[in-house]
Amino acid sequence: MSQEFVPDDNFSVSEALEEDRPNDASAVSEQEVVPITVVGSRAAVLETIHTLYRLGFASVGDWSPPQRGAKPGPVISVLIRRHRKA
C-alpha cells in the first residue's frame, strides 16, 4: 500500500526522520522514533488529526501536510513522536 503514494518535493518521511534526529549519539540511543501515519480521504485524515488534537495527542501543526497518492483519493499524513527508551 505504501507504494501507492508518490513522494512530494516538499516532504518525505525519511527526510523528516533525519531532520528530527538529535546530533548527540548518546541522545539518539536513548530515544525511540515512532512514526504515526493516518491514511484515507483528505477529509477523514484532517478530521482524525483534529480529533487527536482535541484529545491532547498532538498539535495540528506537528503533522506533515497531507500528501496525495498515486491514485486519486487517499492521502497520507505522518507525525513523528519520540519516546525515551525504558
Rank of each mutant, 00 (worst) to 15 (best):
F11I: 03
E4A: 04
K85G: 01
A16W: 08
L55E: 02
K71W: 02
P74G: 07
E19P: 00
D24G: 01
V38H: 08
A70P: 03
P65A: 09
K85D: 01
K85R: 11
A16T: 13
E15Y: 04
R42W: 02
T48Q: 03
A25T: 11
R84G: 04
F5L: 15
A44W: 09
Q3V: 03
I36T: 15
E18W: 14
R54Q: 14
V78F: 15
S26F: 01
D62C: 06
D62S: 15
L52H: 01
V13C: 09
T37R: 14
H83N: 09
H50I: 05
N10T: 11
E15N: 13
A27M: 02
V75A: 11
P72N: 14
G40N: 06
V39K: 06
Q31P: 00
S64V: 10
S29W: 05
N10Q: 08
V38Y: 03
P22K: 15
S26K: 07
R42E: 11
K85T: 09
E30M: 05
I76H: 06
G69L: 02
I80L: 04
R42H: 10
N10Y: 06
E47S: 14
V75Y: 11
E4C: 06
E19Q: 12
Q31F: 01
L55Q: 09
G56R: 05
G61V: 09
I49C: 04
S12P: 00
S41N: 09
T48A: 12
R82W: 01
A86S: 08
S14N: 13
R54Y: 14
R81K: 12
I49Y: 00
S12E: 15
S64A: 14
L55C: 07
P35C: 04
I76T: 15
I76L: 14
A25L: 14
S12I: 04
R21C: 07
I76E: 11
V75G: 08
V6R: 08
E4S: 12
T51M: 06
D20W: 00
A44I: 10
L52Q: 09
H83Y: 04
S12M: 10
V75P: 07
T48M: 11
S64D: 13
E19F: 07
A58W: 07
P65F: 03
R84M: 03
L55D: 04
I49V: 15
G61Q: 03
R42Q: 07
P7H: 02
S26E: 08
D24T: 06
A27G: 03
S59L: 01
A16Q: 15
E19V: 14
A86Q: 09
G69V: 11
W63D: 03
E15H: 12
S64I: 04
F11M: 08
S12A: 07
G61S: 09
E15P: 00
D8I: 05
S59P: 00
V45P: 08
I76F: 05
D62K: 12
G56L: 01
T37L: 13
R42V: 07
R84N: 04
W63M: 06
